[in-house]
Design a protein around this nucleic acid. Structure first.
Lengths: 232, 232
DNA sequence: GTAATAGTTTTCGTATACGATTTCGTACTC
DNA sequence: GAGTACGAAATCGTATACGAAAACTATTAC
């Protein structure tokens, strides 16, 4: 009957869950861009549910940092702020570094091979200039590394960071070709470290630097183009 | 008028906020111990509000890992599980390590002096065997170190970890005197590293180890006393 | 005595409704 | 003409109510 077809095929049953997934998807894919005003009643109508589950969904998204909520005023899609980007990237570099180091001993040859295949495809994307697919593959690559992470809390933090980035990137942050080439090389170097059984410390440092370098590239570009801060 | 006096003097106005603060406080101070069944209607009545804001509060606490929520069944105070403790401590060691390293350059002489005073009082607590105050001072000590942390996301993660631990510790995990002495010494060592301007890397390692050592002490004790896992 | 089942109770999930708060527009005054 | 005050509209926050799902209990069949 009703079974409102939410963005992705999320038929978990709970209206609240549906609303959460739908709004989250729209934020991440950029349909709701940063600053967008999320009006409960409007979203509720769009999704064919009442405001209560929508409110719950919004607050959950707030806890994940995807929306900003103001008492008696309403919710807006968060993001934009370069400072926020810096915070997120810095946190992510730490978390991903740890996640990679913890996962490394559990990564087998098959995983390495799969990661290499993904990385090769990323190189292709650079030839054909396909930044969207590149970004997707980049996630796939890191997913291979992290899927064995023995600490679910850390894995959860990684995913949260990714979601934030996805929301930010989809609207404000540009693709930096020079950095992308370097990134692919760093992936290969990481894989070599892992398969040669490098120390956890070395792997962590490399993984951290991988993320930090992307941040630095962004900062450099921002400075170079005299990036005018889009205000909230 | 009404202004329901919630547990702590939390008169933020919003019922949802009140419920959140009240339930959180009860979990952390142990009034609601792990496994305790959180029935919406009952809590709502206790607090003198309706179920809607209580539900919102509970879900917020779920996002922070303090309660476990099951669809159509209800919420229980999470915790107990030693595995969960391990995950939390491991994550915290990483986050605190980074937080300390990032804060270090911003810590001044006054902060160091304050931290030393707290640490001295911790030593006293060991003489008089006052584990409750010791735990409080321990938080104070680390607060001094972290309060200058330039990345609010990381600081937030630290606080979340502490809350989880508080909820766990208050009911299940025991005070380990031997470890406590060592902990105080490590604090002093950390302060020396910071005031001598050691490298961020060294500070991070030391801070991480400080937390890891506590985890190890727990694991050793658990193994020694053949700690029988209290089931959910 | 045990297991399956039907009925009852508890508790959750969400729709609806209404009071409270903010915001926006308009008119009025200086 | 600019600023302020007042009123209307929009939106949030929460109480209440009811349907749905799960858990519990008692009963019956084997």
């Amino acid at each position: 009957m009703t079974e409102t077809v939410t963005a992705a095929g999320t038929s978990t049953g709970s209206k609240s869950e549906q609303a959460y997934a739908a709004v989250k998807a729209r934020i991440i894919d950029g349909a709701y861009s940063p600053g967008y005003r999320l009006v409960l009643a409007k979203i509720a109508e769009d999704l064919g549910v009442s405001v209560v589950p929508v409110r719950e969904a919004i607050r959950r998204l707030e806890a994940e940092g995807l929306v900003k909520f103001e008492r008696n005023v309403g919710a807006t899609v968060s993001g934009i702020d370069p400072t926020e980007y810096l915070y997120t990237m810095q946190t992510l570099s730490i978390i991903e570094g740890a996640a990679t180091a913890l996962s490394a001993p559990l990564i087998g040859e098959a995983d390495i091979a799969r990661a290499r295949a993904v990385n090769a495809e990323m190189r292709d994307c650079l030839q054909h200039f396909d930044p969207v697919r590149f970004t997707q593959l980049n996630q796939d690559f890191h997913s291979v590394l992290f899927e064995h992470c023995p600490n679910p809390h850390i894995l959860d933090l990684v995913h949260r960071g990714w979601n934030r980035l996805a929301a930010l990137r989809s609207s404000t942050f540009r693709f930096v070709p020079g950095r992308a080439h370097q990134s692919v090389d760093e992936h290969e170097a990481l894989l070599r470290l892992i398969e040669t059984g490098a120390s956890a410390d070395d792997i962590e440092k490399a993984a951290r630097l991988h993320r930090s370098a992307t941040l630095d590239a962004y900062l450099a570009q921002a400075a170079a183009t005299d990036h005018h801060t889009p205000q909230q």
